[in-house]
Amino acid sequence: MQVLNRKSFKLPFVGKDKFVRLTRVGLGYDGGSFHVRDNNNVEKIVDIISDVLGEKVSFFQTCVLCGQDFLCSGCRHQDLCPTKDLPLQCICENCRATPKLYDQYVKNLGSGKLASTELR
């Protein structure tokens, strides 16, 4: 199992065909490392990379509240989660116990913290 960070990760030589396919389904390349540019088809990205690496691939999760990276493997909802291991926003185990979570959530997003800098 290989864990990747959506903002930047390196891959071994993938070959022209796979490279074209990866960029087409939403992976960005900046000359040295890859990043997830478009989330619409991340399942396909995962499939192709798993194929390249010959092992299962999962992504770090980013906590919307504290910004920490964490893994799905510790989450008790992974049995039901249809987006398990995909590079999406979630809330880490530590933050789930925080009171007034929602207000904090709205504040974080509204003030442009974290991934949604583009929002404001």
Binding site: N40, C75, L80, C81, P82, T83, I91, R96
Partner: peptide
């Protein structure tokens, strides 16, 4: 311009329900 929506993750729904 395609924008995909996914099912919302359980911890995020809980946050809203708490509110």
């Amino acid at each position: 311009h395609l924008i995909r929506f996914r099912k919302v993750r359980i911890p995020l729904i809980v946050v809203l329900l708490q509110k």
